[in-house]
Nucleic acid binder design. Structure first.
Lengths: 379, 379
DNA sequence: TTGAAAGCGCTAACAT
DNA sequence: ATGTTAGCGCTTTCAA
């Protein structure tokens, strides 16, 4: 049973009576800054100074305050801080409502969002910040008002934007107007707005293409995503970069257009092989299409990777569970979220490596070689 | 460009001058309760009454206030509310630090956590609450102090506990002492503490067993999880329930003990078939073990489901990507989180169905029949 | 039924 | 280098 007793202590100068519930041993309590000040025999402003690492604090004072804080197990109240100050120690991650609902209804979690959150959570936790997850509904006519209200209600220290929010004009506008720092994960336009955290899609596609070339492949097909998407463009460019750099030909019929779906991957493979049956490798610009291509290839009697190599992009969960397991590009989602958090939390910004553009972060990707790619068959 | 102008308005009775930054059209702003009161020509207390649906409010007053709120796009400031009131409109989900770090390092998100969060997020969003994700580190010696500080810093309206936090004594103790309502997802002990949200593990296992029996199977093997785990016990009991109900024999050699890992599933299958080669179906108490069993069965020359049916439990992502796809029990994680949120948010509690114990919620599970189970072969 | 005034626990100007 | 005081935007007694 918990023993509760009341202690009344009077803050000397303010003459402010503070009544406090003290729990057993007084070691776990929700002390206030007044109690810390009283215990240390200083003013609340001094406590605040120490807590915020402000300049002009004597070592002796700091020591007294630190001791009192430790003895009381004191932690600043989040609400009071954000109410009084300019912003809170909360990082808000804005996720898309439509995607959330879709994921929830299908009963499948989002691997992407999960990795992202875990990455941010670890960083935030280390500096005593907090992670809030919020949904924004693009379909809402009142999006602008809702977002403004959200920001003024939460007053986050920073906001992490995930696709498709990263490129949403209204969201960016409201954030700019509110003066809230924000980091955009994998933005595909307006690169100058906010902090952008991305991977080098073009280089990654080139790396994968190079991997296929190194395996001896010369006739390589490519399946793009929707042309309208920036990422589709960049992945295609990377493919062409590597082909040209190797002095290889990438004719028009070596490129099929898909829409990032399984079925479009299957169709793309049909088209590529119909156009050039001697194709020995196909690089699809996402995993779903690669898996579709894998299925179509098998149906066509091609063994993967013996008769045909197939590569994907994204490293989704399904890439590991396919047969054969898919060679793909791993998006460093967790690292991106961690990097974003780093630019949003003042205490962490100082620790950044020198000479890096603090606004445009490029996180290294990883070529993940599994079993769907192999050396070209001896001809 | 944003046009900023200052408006000074004086709250009549308080004589309190409020200076406000008004943005273009004054339709998206961070209005305060004073502005709403001024606009409606009432006191702030009246606004507060309307906002909180307190009794003793005339229809005329409510109408005026509602209009002012709508015109100003007013939303209450979260920090101010939680500072002044007893608690905030924040639901905190406490996840395990070790699991988080493990997931983050492996580069794989947590499907479980993701589904859970999405389920909670949708509910919370609907009532203008907010979801905060926090990590708790069981390994920390200062766990108790850290948790207390966390609670007093955030002052959440409620806390959602995921395994293994659901059963952590210190966590439950601190929550009780702080008087914060909490919901435990899938607790396996102390069922009387807090709100518990779970599925009927025993019934689910019985359902799956019944499914196998209905397919004509008579000699069914079972692979348990670690005996120490409560869920292992309950799933085994469910298996035995169904066997006995059907008048079938479940001898000791029809039960193998695993530890929830892939390898232990493979080993379990070997043991079961060694003991009784005529076994026609094996039910593993989680998907990982079922997949291990699947592999071992195939290696042994048994075709699944033609020569042997295999069933799992949990419906993890891998269950969908195996060949054949796994018949399993789907844990309604999203629904559990939604139910938990419902009992934690005062505004939602009233909407509960009649006659249901509000403290012990059992969420319906789903038997998910895929391709790894089939009719027993004609003998 | 409605309003006035006192905080909640901080931060931030403004003293000293 | 340290202290005083006035809010931040609400909720909550207590009055009227």
């Amino acid at each position: 049973m918990t023993i509760v007793q009341r202690c009344h202590l009077v803050y000397p100068s303010a003459g402010r009576a503070v009544s406090v519930m003290m729990r057993k041993a007084c070691d776990v309590s929700s002390a206030t800054i007044y109690e810390v000040a009283a215990r240390a025999g200083v003013s609340i402003k001094s406590v605040s100074r120490v807590l915020n690492s402000e300049p002009n604090v004597s070592a002796a004072l700091k020591e007294k305050v630190d001791a009192a804080v430790a003895e009381l197990g004191y932690r600043r109240n989040l609400s009071a801080r954000s109410l009084a100050g300019a912003s809170s120690s909360v990082i808000a991650a804005l996720v898309d409502a439509a995607l959330t609902i879709e994921h929830s209804r299908s009963g499948r979690g989002s691997d992407y969002l999960s990795r992202l959150q875990l990455g941010a959570l670890l960083e935030v936790h280390a500096v005593d910040y907090h992670l809030m997850i919020e949904m924004v509904d693009h379909a809402s006519a009142r999006l602008r008002g809702e977002l403004t209200a959200l920001l003024s209600s939460i007053r986050p220290a920073g906001v992490i934007l995930t696709p498709p929010n990263s490129d949403h004009q209204v969201v960016l506008d409201v954030l700019d107007e509110a003066g809230v720092p924000y980091a955009r994960i994998s933005p595909s336009r307006d690169p100058e707005r906010g902090i952008s955290v991305s991977m080098d899609e073009r280089q990654a596609a080139a790396d994968m293409t190079r991997h296929l070339i190194d395996l001896g492949h010369r006739r390589i097909g490519f399946i793009t995503g929707p042309i309208a998407y920036g990422v589709s463009q960049r992945r295609l460019e990377g493919f062409l970069d590597a082909m040209h750099a190797a002095g290889l030909d990438a004719p028009a019929h070596a490129v099929a257009t898909g829409d990032f779906t399984f079925d479009s991957g299957a169709a793309g493979l049909e088209k590529l092989l119909d156009a050039r049956d001697a194709t020995t490798a196909v690089f699809a610009s996402n995993d779903d299409m690669a898996l579709g291509a894998l299925k179509a290839a098998t149906a066509r009697g091609r063994r993967v990777p013996d008769d045909l190599s197939i590569a994907g992009f994204d490293d989704t969960v399904s890439a590991v569970f396919s047969t054969p397991q898919l060679t793909t590009i791993r998006q460093p989602v967790g690292e991106m979220a961690a990097a974003a958090t780093h630019r949003l939390v003042p205490a962490l910004i100082r620790q950044l490596p020198e000479g890096e553009d603090p606004q445009r972060i490029v996180v290294p990707h990883a070529l993940t070689i599994r079993q769907s790619t192999g050396p070209v068959a001896f001809e």
